[in-house]
């Protein structure tokens, strides 16, 4: 039979666990389809896509498959912004619960963009890497923090900080030279960038557990045989489960690694949590107000169930 070949665009470097998950997915698909579907994974943005344009690129089939950070495409489709809202969830269990309640919404939104979500995987939670210890919300005032999206910038601004947007490649140099004094990111990224050489503290503020999704263009999907589709779905379920565990394990490992390298890690106490939630509340309300009614219903429904 003919072999179906597809390119999968992976936005992170080959060493990142999302990219490795995509490789594992490709491997299993090849195995379960008896070699009739071959997926070539291109990590590190080698295909020339930056992120925000990916929904459209997959919709047009310019790239048949891609790993997409959901929050990055919310400019195209508001629904995908849910998982990057601050302080919606504060543990992997909650993150999974939220994903379950949003799954139908996500699938519908993907279908609107002529694609299908194969599986989703969470980033480890973002926290604050800083030079000075953060004990109360007052310590966040005046921090020059590198953030990665609009929500993060708004969140820190609400707490009195001065968020700075900067390409990740400049972060290390900017820290060494004092242009910024803190970074909002996960322990995993902190470990990979060896942030202990420039920063001393990590506050686990459980800012968010942003989701990545691996999607396939519907025309490519429909061209597959029933057996091939079943095989891909089987691989997707397995890899999704694997990636959720991997994310949590990676997070624990990274926390250990940064601690061993001299970064003092601390938890968020109830007083700080309340302040963080207050700062997040305005952002979530704004989001709900501008998203459609069905998104609002799901988000508010989830928040009520957590109280």
């Amino acid at each position: 039979a003919d072999v179906v070949k597809m390119n999968l665009n992976a936005i992170y470097p080959a060493t990142n666990f999302h990219s490795q998950g995509a490789e594992e997915f490709a491997k299993r698909v090849k195995e379960y389809t008896g070699g009739t579907v071959e997926i070539a994974v291109h990590p590190g943005g080698a295909l020339g896509f930056k992120g925000p344009e990916l929904l459209k690129a997959v919709k047009d089939g310019t790239v048949p498959m891609s790993d997409i950070l959901m929050g990055v495409v919310q400019g195209s489709e508001k629904t995908f912004g849910i998982s990057s809202l601050p302080r919606m969830v504060t543990s992997y269990d909650e993150a999974f619960k939220l994903y379950q309640s949003c799954k139908d919404l996500y699938d519908k939104a993907a279908a609107k963009w002529n694609q299908k979500i194969l599986y989703v995987a969470p980033w480890p939670p973002s926290g604050l890497f800083t030079t000075k210890e953060i004990k109360t919300a007052a310590d966040i005032k005046g921090l020059k923090t590198r953030t990665y999206d609009k929500n993060g910038a708004d969140f820190l601004a609400n707490l009195g900080g001065s968020p700075v947007s900067l390409p990740w490649g400049e972060v290390y140099a900017a820290l060494r030279t004092g242009m910024i004094d803190s970074v909002l990111t996960s322990a995993v990224s902190g470990r990979d960038a060896k942030l202990w050489e420039v920063l001393k503290y990590f506050k686990k503020i459980d800012y968010a557990y942003p989701l990545n999704m691996v999607v396939i263009n519907l025309d490519y999907w429909k061209a597959l045989t029933a057996d091939q589709k079943a095989a891909m779905e089987k691989a997707a379920i397995e890899v999704q489960e694997m990636q959720w565990k991997k994310s949590a394990a990676d997070n624990a490992e990274s926390l250990k690694a940064i601690e061993e390298n001299g970064i003092a890690i601390s938890e968020t106490d109830a007083a700080l949590a309340a302040e963080l939630d207050a700062a997040a509340d305005a952002i979530i309300k704004d989001f709900v107000a501008s998203a459609g009614a069905d998104v609002a219903a799901v988000v508010e429904g989830y928040r009520k169930s957590q109280k």
Binding site: P52, K56, G71, V73, Q74, G75, S76, K150, A153
Partner: peptide, 11 residues
């Protein structure tokens, strides 16, 4: 037509 906006503060 798809009302795409930038994922930045300016939207």
């Amino acid at each position: 037509s798809l009302r795409m906006v930038s994922e930045t503060p300016a939207q």
